[in-house]
Design a protein around this nucleic acid. Structure first.
Lengths: 185, 185
DNA sequence: GAACAGTGTTCATTATGACGAACATACGGC
DNA sequence: GCCGTATGTTCGTCATAATGAACACTGTTC
């Protein structure tokens, strides 16, 4: 995660969110139960607020607390079925396309995965806290963390911790699935 | 987002992360350039740290700043194709299943959507900053924000801002897709 | 068991963030 | 022009977060 100094990050975030909400500085101050001088200082970059203060601001603005670390919404992206950058795989029987790389401020990747029957693909543990969401789209597969694999049929959804060793094994030809890999950070 | 009082949230987060890193309280204090008494107080729930303090802790622990709002990794969840809580829809031609409700600290929902041809389903704008990721699984559909709809075929992926009016229209029977709705907060 | 190296805790002092009144503007009546 | 009401700013005061030394506790070593 990029670190442009916490206070400036906060300053920008508050300015941005307040502008978006259309509230005036005084109005927000009252809504949050803070002194407007406090807000003024924070928005101008000098200041090192406490979480209680930030919490009050976030709730008054009606935004989740994590708005501090987020980045303006990206624009649209379209990846056609035959496009997309394949994710490296020595396994010919496994082909994943990274559809939505993790943007700054978020911790998740979205993949389109194709799997052919054969040797199960074994994935090493991802960083601690990583979770995978698998939705089987076609075919049949045995997926999950070692010891808790499940047989999935089309439409089945399975979520499991991916910070431990886990497997993907196609049980039918042309098995396809959508995977959301979520990192807690 | 559920609000279990900011300070307790922080307290739990610091305790959890420090335990995970294996650092002692004194060691972390030194690494972060803080007094260990400060950490002790924070971990015990009393205290209202400033972001600079939190920042120092986060970087010393080597975790992204957003670790504060995250929740311990959940366990596995399995939703079979015929299970899952359908999301309310007056539209008979539209059926969505919420597979992975947004856990505290995150801002995304994962849906399995089934769509039948007929009147396009028009969705009102979601909260500002919301983004939708659609991966078409079967059939054919016209999807996207008003004015930027795209015809999707199986395998196609489309991401677009959902904080504006947008449509889902099936162009073939039994159209299915996976949608990740992401709120920036 | 005395000396030591760890753990995390408590408690005065001090640095500083939050407050609120006073301030500088800007705009709109009348 | 002179008010009334917005905007966001600055500054002295007070509450409080952060400090560091002293503390209680555990386990090891000799």
């Amino acid at each position: 995660m990029p670190q442009p100094a916490p206070n400036e990050m906060i300053a920008a975030a508050i300015r941005r969110e307040r502008a978006k909400s259309g509230l005036s500085l005084s109005a927000l101050a009252e809504a949050a139960g803070l002194a407007k001088s406090t807000l003024s200082q924070l928005e101008s970059g000098r200041g090192n607020p406490s979480i209680e203060t930030l919490w009050a601001i976030a709730t008054a603005l009606g935004v989740p607390f994590s708005f501090l670390f987020e980045t303006p919404t990206p624009d649209v992206t379209l990846v056609r079925a035959d496009e997309g950058h394949g994710v490296g795989s020595d396994h010919a029987a496994y082909h994943a396309t990274l559809l939505a790389p993790c943007p700054p401020g978020l911790r998740r990747d979205i993949y389109r995965v194709e799997l052919a029957p054969g040797t199960p693909r074994r994935s090493e543990p991802h960083p601690p806290g990583t979770v995978e969401h698998c939705l089987l789209v076609a075919g049949e597969a045995r997926i999950g963390p070692a010891g808790a694999e499940e047989i999935l049929h089309p439409g089945d959804y399975y979520r499991y911790p991916a910070d431990m060793s886990h497997v993907y094994e196609a049980l039918a030809p042309a098995t396809r699935l959508v995977m959301v890999m979520e990192s807690r950070g």
